[in-house]
């Protein structure tokens, strides 16, 4: 099951696959042509579909941004239908909601990822295989809970209990402006971050579990042979092996947190402008803003929301790309 034994097999596969395409086997039957054709059709179709969606979104977004009377990138207001502007002209900017999206997602990952990695290590390295797989199923079940349920739970249960924790954090870290409040807590970006942490936990845990399971037996045994304790073995063999994969898992969780809509919209109360105090009620994210505003938005409003969706997509791409660079650097430094 080691990598060295897998790779020659993979090479042999590639050689066999290459043969028919280079025309060395001449008798391509009807089945071949049908299958090849439908596979090619599916590939072309998905490309055309993606291109059409992208073109539609970019067209709509460009139209809205063209009408925007303030800077789309730096403005804190969101009023694309001109409800509050003197002449009803559209004024909207992405800055405040993009900030809220990033802050809640970062809080979610900071709280969720360590727990998820702990869960994955416990399941793969500490529990017997059979109990571990049962435990794994239970963690996976968390991912099957609809996000609206997390939203309801966050709104009705968690929110009531966040003021105590928030107050302690403010007492300790209140000298940092980020953690200051006006004396009210709950419904904050921090609360939303906690809900997000729980929502992304099963994704990160499931992937990390699969990766840690693949740790080469030889390396584990080598670590033990050197007299390592279990923790030292994990640090020497399991964690370095899984580093790039688990980083990808965290990015995946971050992506989910960035795009999470209903749960955040339910937990977070929206206040106009930029919110810098993360423990105080109020804040907004791109996805929650879309969920709240879409029903009542008029033409420009909808196009502006599509533009904000594109920004969200762009943010996800940038985060992914940055993470890929980090992982590649770390991989090079490690080997």
């Amino acid at each position: 099951m080691s990598n060295e034994r897998l790779s020659p097999v993979a090479d042999a596969d590639e050689v066999e696959v290459r043969d028919p395409r280079s025309g060395l086997t001449a008798k391509a039957g009807l089945g071949d042509r049908l299958f090849g054709g439908s596979a090619r059709g599916a590939a072309v179709f998905i490309l055309i579909l993606m291109a059409a969606i992208a073109a539609f979104l970019i067209y709509q977004a460009a139209e809205a941004i063209g009408k925007d009377q303030v800077n789309f990138v730096t403005s804190f207001t969101w009023d694309p239908d001109g409800n509050s502007t003197p002449n009803g002209q559209p004024e909207f900017g992405i800055a405040a909601i993009a900030w809220g999206t990033l802050v809640t997602s970062v809080i979610g990952v900071l709280l969720g990822a360590p727990v998820a990695i702990g869960v994955a290590l416990f399941i793969t390295q500490y529990l017997p295989r059979k109990i571990g797989s049962v435990f794994g199923y239970i963690v996976d079940l968390l991912a099957a809970v609809p996000s609206v349920v997390y939203g309801l739970w966050g709104l009705l249960v968690l929110d009531q209990h966040m003021s105590g924790v928030s107050k302690i954090i403010e007492d300790v870290l209140g000298w940092i402006p980020l953690f200051k409040t006006d004396g009210t807590y709950g419904s904050s970006m921090f609360t939303a971050g906690v809900v997000l942490a729980i929502m992304i936990l099963p994704i990160i845990a499931a992937i990390a579990r699969e990766i840690y399971k693949q740790t080469p037996r030889e390396q584990i045994e080598a670590a033990y042979a050197l007299g390592a304790t279990r923790w030292e073995m994990i640090r020497l063999a399991v964690l370095p092996y899984g580093r790039s994969g688990v980083t990808s898992a965290i990015i995946l969780g971050f992506g989910r947190a960035l795009g999470e809509t209903i749960a955040v919209a339910m937990v977070l109360t929206q206040v106009p402008g930029l919110v810098t105090r993360i423990l105080q009620p109020g804040g907004n994210t791109i996805a929650a803003n879309i969920a709240v505003q879409f029903g009542d938005a008029f033409t420009t409003g909808r196009q502006a929301l599509i533009a904000s969706g594109l920004v969200l997509f762009l943010m996800t791409l940038i985060v992914n790309y940055a993470a890929r660079v980090v992982v590649r650097r770390a991989g090079k430094a490690g080997s």
Binding site: I207, S244, G245, T247, S248, A249, I251, L252, F254, G255, R256, L258, G259, E260, T261, A287, I290, I306, G309, L312, F313, T316, L317, V319, N320, Y321, A323, R324, V327
Partner: peptide, 16 residues
Amino acid sequence: SVAGIAVAAALALSAC
């Protein structure tokens, strides 16, 4: 990691 990126991107898209 590539798969992770692809899936994360797809998640963000599907969220919109």
